[in-house]
């Protein structure tokens, strides 16, 4: 499934999607950035509630397919602008982390 397809599903929406055709493979959930870099795999969906600008660099370097911000949290516009410029997809889910992960597991 592509990131664009995921963003179109009920429960998810795109905040910025500069690389819509990226394929999704698996997922990782976590807020501690070094855990994410140590454990997430390339093309994973990364589910988190962190919204500071450092998530963009982490997503780019760990090569995840997209970030999904759970609990309906929204980053500042400047973070979305940086993500757009760096080619990092950021989606949002209004649901809590666990439910977001369960929904993702059912659909991907």
């Amino acid at each position: 499934m592509t990131v664009q397809t995921l963003a179109g599903l009920d429960g998810f929406c795109a905040l910025t999607c500069p690389q819509p055709d990226r394929e999704i493979c698996g997922a990782y959930v976590g807020d501690l950035l070094s855990w994410v870099m140590g454990r997430a795999e390339a093309d994973n969906v990364w589910i988190t509630i962190m919204t500071n600008v450092n998530i963009v660099a982490v997503a780019a370097l760990a090569d995840v397919s997209c970030i999904v911000l759970a609990e309906g949290v929204k980053p500042e516009q400047s973070v979305l602008d940086t993500a757009e410029a760096k080619g990092v997809n950021i989606l949002q889910s209004a649901r809590p982390i666990y439910e977001t992960a369960v929904l993702l597991a059912k659909t991907v």
């Binding site: 807020d31 501690l32 950035l33 070094s34 855990w35 870099m37 140590g38 962190m50 500071n52 450092n54």
Partner: peptide, 8 residues
Amino acid sequence: LGFGAGMG
């Protein structure tokens, strides 16, 4: 900010 896990 999400750093400081001691995993770097």
